[in-house]
Design a protein around this nucleic acid. Structure first.
Lengths: 141, 141
DNA sequence: CTAGGAGTTCAAGCCGACTTGAAGTCAACG
DNA sequence: CGTTGACTTCAAGTCGGCTTGAACTCCTAG
């Protein structure tokens, strides 16, 4: 049915593609972050499918956006369990999306505070009055 | 010169204002995150000035945007050292601002990936074809 | 006068996510 | 044939930033 030209990748290749150290890829596997088993060649070395390599990339995004390993694991468990739990998977994704959006909002708030301080310094330095900057105080926000 | 009506705050009050647990406020002080000394009343309890309380709030923003404690410490050391190093303080702030902007960009990239996945689920669930979602694969990005 | 609650110090513990290390296997090249 | 260099497993260590705990002091209200 699906004519698959199986391109298999070594851990080193996946490492390159994802930016994850090989150690971390093994660690992720151990933590159950892959739905299917990762194959091995005759010598016992890992062979990743393109899909698995792609999933590893997705994982980097989930991680960099703060999804904890146990939650990725939970999601993967649902995937492994097969069809019937799509709503639950969807809920996990949507909830994480919400959290990330919140993170962005929080960061932007912090950024505003920092930027205010930056501007104060900019002006004071330009005017040569930087030595008059209050030590901490109401110089910001 | 400056007619200061000294309003001093207890650690509990500062905790409330900043959202930082009292333990954390003491910890920050110990880590050298305050430029000046924090005063004490007769019984040895901490009394914060409004400026110090405000600075604690700024610290929450620096922290929540990922500035490491040692770097806040470094900045504070410069403040303590007095005028003459404004350029250096400015550099720290500007650099951090840059990093935070980068964080926002990265998060938004991750958000896009996640959102793509969310949309795929949304559509599949609406169409009742969710069971046909590929396990991992090219469903995203 | 005593019980509660906020504060104090100092030290140890915890958590997540890696990272590092040791000790060994394998294959391809010169 | 020998030496790189990528790979393997399993275990232990690291790191930042709190968090928790124990043991104590002080002020205030009932």
């Amino acid at each position: 049915m699906t004519t698959e030209t199986e391109t298999l990748l070594s851990i080193g290749e996946v490492s390159e593609r994802t930016g994850l150290p090989t150690h971390t890829l093994r660690f992720y596997e151990q933590e159950g972050l892959f739905a299917g088993p990762i194959r091995r060649n005759a010598a016992g070395r890992r062979l990743y499918t393109e899909e698995q390599a792609h999933w590893a990339r997705v994982c980097t995004k989930l991680r960099s956006s703060g999804m904890p390993l146990p939650e990725i694991h939970r999601y993967v468990d649902l995937v492994r369990a097969g069809s019937g739990n799509e709503e639950e998977r969807f809920a996990i994704l949507r909830e994480h999306e919400r959290k990330v959006a919140q993170q962005v909002a929080d960061l932007e708030e912090a950024l505003a505070v920092i930027h205010t301080k930056v501007e104060i310094y900019e002006e004071a330095l330009a005017a040569g009055t930087a030595d008059q900057l209050w030590r901490d105080g109401p110089t910001c926000e």
